[in-house]
Design a binder for these strands. Structure first.
Lengths: 112, 112
DNA sequence: GCCTATAATCGTATTTTAACGATTAATAGG
DNA sequence: CCTATTAATCGTTAAAATACGATTATAGGC
């Protein structure tokens, strides 16, 4: 049950690094905070398992306009969850499992 | 290196349940998508370790207006990351480690 | 060189979020 | 009862996110 002592919050003093990593965590969470982007990552994750990547045909898959999908991709790339490599006239999008793990670990270490 | 085959995205067919859990993940991520809320959870997490909870003195801690903090708390409560129990004129806020774990697992199972 | 395909960027409208001060509701204490 | 404390809610303003069509830039194929 809840103890609910009125604990002085000065006990929870904060370092600069702590605030920095919290800000980073919030920033990454923001990139994940949309169903379309979660969906994109899922598709890219599955393709990664199959040894491929996406020469974007996401538009029909998501039912969103090309420019909208492009914007979602931009957000994910900026957050490091996706790598984009140009290929002829197309672009190859690949998930960054490294960044997925980074997020997972950052979350775990923040609240452990 | 990137294979980048133009894999048919029909391979990544989607179930209704998959879409539902993806939407849930996005919703939870959205609740985490602000530094102040990450901070609040951190403070509550630390207090939980000390066997206490917060009769909100977060206002001075965060340097935000009382109504703003209240709104952030509302978002976190709605997402299930915080439980609130009234205590006299105050309210006791406690972190839900269960929900933290749920989020962590949902993320892991989505991309594993 | 010109046409096509792809995807980023631009411009814009709409919606959502964030923040604050002010007000309200609830309860404890005198 | 009245008062003080606490926290939610209201009203409003400002900022950011979302979405789309239209345009632009790049590169390959003819």
């Amino acid at each position: 049950m809840a103890n609910c002592n009125d604990i002085n919050s000065n006990l929870t003093n904060t370092s600069v690094n702590e605030l920095k990593s919290e800000k980073a965590l919030a920033h990454l969470a923001k990139a994940l905070a949309h169903p379309a982007r979660i969906r994109i990552l899922k598709i890219l994750f599955k393709l990664d398992q199959l040894g491929g990547c996406l020469n974007s045909n996401l538009v029909s898959e998501l039912g969103l306009a090309q420019s909208t999908v492009s914007e979602h991709l931009r957000v994910l790339i900026k957050a490091g969850f996706i790598d984009a490599t140009p290929q002829a006239t197309k672009v190859c999008y690949q998930i960054s499992t490294k960044q997925l793990n980074y997020f997972s670990n950052l979350f775990a270490t923040t609240y452990q």
